[in-house]
Amino acid sequence: MKWMYLLMSIAGGVAIGIQAIVNGGLGKKVGTIEASFISFFIGTIALLVTMLCFGKGNLFAINEVPKWQLIGGLLGAFYVFILVMSVPKIGVTATFFSIIAGQLLISAIIDHFGLLGGQTYPLNIKKAIAILLMFGSIYLYNQK
C-alpha cells in the first residue's frame, strides 16, 4: 500500500511541474499577482464542486481547529506566487531545485522535532548529508 502513496506523490509532483510552466506563462500575460489569483480561483471552484459531490467531512468544524492550522491557504498562495514569479526568470528546473531543497530542509526540521503536531523522525548524519547535497546541486546546476 505504501507504493501507492509514493506513486500518487510522484503524480502530484508531475502536476506541480506542469502547473509551474502553465502559471509562469499566464503570469507573463496577465501579471504575477493576477495569475496567482486566477490559479487559486479556478482551483477553489474545482474544490468546491468536488466537495459538494464527494465531501464527507464537516466544513463547519473550522471553528474547532487551532487558528494556526488555517494558514495553509496563505502558504499555498505564497507558493504559487513564487512559482509565477520565478519560473519565467530562472526556469522550471532551477525553481524546483530550490523549492525542493527548501521543502526538504523544513521537512527535516519538522520531522526531527515533531513540530506542528507531527510525529518525530530523527535526523541522522546520512539525512543531513543528503540535504546538504541537495543544496550543492542548486549551486552546481546554476553555474555557467
Rank of each mutant, 00 (worst) to 15 (best):
K89Y: 06
A101G: 13
I138C: 13
Q19I: 00
I62Y: 08
I99Y: 07
E64C: 04
G57N: 04
L74Y: 05
G73E: 04
T120K: 15
G13W: 05
W3L: 13
V22C: 04
S36Y: 01
K56N: 12
F97A: 06
I125T: 15
I62E: 03
L74V: 14
P66Q: 04
A61C: 00
K2I: 12
S137F: 11
G114S: 10
T95W: 07
V84G: 02
K126L: 12
K29L: 05
N142M: 11
A61P: 01
F54H: 06
I131E: 08
A11N: 06
T95I: 07
S86L: 13
G12N: 08
A61Y: 01
G118H: 14
L115Y: 11
K144N: 14
I71V: 15
F113Q: 11
K29F: 00
A46Q: 06
G117V: 09
T32R: 08
V80A: 09
S137W: 05
L104R: 05
C53L: 15
F54P: 00
F41Y: 09
I131V: 15
F97D: 03
N142E: 06
I33K: 05
V30M: 12
L75D: 03
L132C: 14
L47V: 13
N58F: 00
I82W: 02
I16F: 10
L47M: 15
A46C: 13
L59G: 05
A77C: 15
G118D: 12
I90L: 07
I131N: 08
G72P: 08
Y5I: 12
G55Y: 05
G72N: 09
L140K: 09
M51Q: 10
V22D: 00
E64N: 15
A35V: 04
G24H: 03
L133W: 03
I38S: 01
M85D: 08
W3Y: 12
Y121D: 08
L75W: 03
T95G: 08
A130T: 13
T32Q: 10
I10F: 13
G73I: 05
I129S: 10
A46G: 06
V30A: 08
I90T: 06
